[in-house]
Amino acid sequence: MSLFEKLGNQVIRMISGFAGTIAFSGKVFLRIFQRKTYSSAMREVLVNQIYFTAVQILPLFLLVSILFGSLFIGIVFSLLKELGLTQFIGHILMGLIVTELSPFLTVLLITLRSSAAINTEMAVMKVNREIRTLEIFRIDIIDYLVMPRIINGIISIVLLSSLFSIVLLASGNLFSRVMFGMSTDVYSNLLLNSTDFSDIVIALLKCAVYGFFITLIPIRFGLRASRELTSIPVVVSQGMVNVFAAILMIEVLSLLTKLL
């Protein structure tokens, strides 16, 4: 096989894989709005998933956001002071930290913890023939396994990203008081004046899209496992690489949306 044929095959595989993921996403997205999706069994899985993803992680998440947030805000504020750009504090806090940094760091943390777990869980279930078992009992895999995880991804990322923003803004309040002698009233006014409603909507939408894809891709790759135990690490690594590629793509698309 020539180099061009190999390259062509790779490109075809990549495009068909991408098209497959988009088609699967469409199918799953439509199910979100169907009433029959929300059976008692599905709701139970959803509650458990939200607990595992958004509640169990809270202590670590709060610690990371307080430590990282305070350090980051401290550095940004001292830079602004040095450059004489203190009048832009509000814009930087809202435009950069709330709408860009919070969703991105949140999605990274959740991907490392939950996406990897979901990918492995699906692959193990496939290898153990548990997926086949569910099919034998006429339990729809998308309704029972996929939907709770996807909805959990959307809810968890939106909530945790909002929490991250709140922690960062609180740190900002503290640092602005210490470094610029700014009162809470002035700080709040500064933030409100710099807030663009469309930016907040885009940030929330971005979180939802992140949540959708960082759960959908691991599930899709996990379900590709064969009967062999050795297929588990293969599909998990493929899934995680694709999740990170998706995160970067979503980030680029959201930046483009902001620019246009």
Partner: peptide, 21 residues
Amino acid sequence: NVPLISNQDVYMNIALIKQYH
């Protein structure tokens, strides 16, 4: 070849059928 779902407790495995269908 139709095993129990390993990430669920025994009672959840049994209740699942009624809850879903």
